[in-house]
């Protein structure tokens, strides 16, 4: 289920090699790097709540990878570098509350209205997506990173620049809140 599943040491070494090539101006290497991670990054933003602009945010993230290519140090995992930039791209997108409001509304408007909608999502998936969107941004990002991106708490802590104990407590709070939200939705359906 995790987008990073299988992104193990070999893959890490390949990413580091590709970044090295990008630093020396190799466009083909950058294209390969993008293709390796575009699905994961795209889904990261969709699960955070972006929908129509998820691709814009993903593109922006890769452009930042290129801009900051000289800041990347191979001692760190490439995905840590990548998702730190993705997180910043997301935060920048949220900085203007109005834009956030517009995005939230578009998300609400664009989500499929029924089980057999264009995206083929099940009702359970839609409920889960709705529940995720009700979390605060700081809780949602921890859930998305650990549940879907398959990151370790230590890596999430590094990306968000918070202690790993805080990641753990946010995850606990998030799961508690998600349980309440999903229970409420379930009760509402049966009433």
């Amino acid at each position: 289920m995790t987008d990073n599943a299988g992104h193990e040491p070999d893959a890490e070494i390949q990413d580091q090699y590709l970044m090295e090539r990008v630093r020396s101006g190799d466009q083909d290497a950058f294209a390969v790097l993008i293709r390796r991670h575009q699905q994961s990054v795209l889904n990261f933003f969709r699960r955070l709540g972006a929908y129509s602009n998820a691709e814009d945010l993903a593109q922006e993230t890769f452009l930042r990878v290129f801009r900051y290519r000289f800041k990347y140090k191979p001692v760190a995992k490439f995905t840590t570098f990548l998702y730190t930039l993705a997180r910043h791209a997301w935060a920048d997108g949220l900085r203007k509350a109005m834009r956030h409001a517009a995005i939230a509304e578009r998300v609400a408007n664009e989500l499929p209205a029924s089980d057999d909608g264009a995206m083929g999502r099940t009702r359970a998936a839609m409920d889960a997506q709705m529940a995720l969107e009700k979390l605060s941004d700081k809780l949602r990002v921890v859930v998305v990173m650990s549940m879907y991106q398959g990151m370790k708490y230590e890596e999430i802590a590094e990306i968000l620049d918070i202690p790993s104990g805080t990641v753990k407590s946010r995850m606990f709070t998030a799961l508690n809140q998600l349980k309440e939200i999903l229970d409420d939705r379930s009760r509402a359906k049966h009433e």
Binding site: N43, A124, A125, V143
Partner: peptide, 22 residues
């Protein structure tokens, strides 16, 4: 809760983003 969250499918990109980004 975790089981339900895992119902959200992973979506494939509609197109390859690499050419546009480059």
């Amino acid at each position: 809760v975790i089981t339900q969250l895992k119902q959200i499918p992973t979506e494939a990109p509609i197109r390859d983003m690499a050419p546009d980004i480059i």
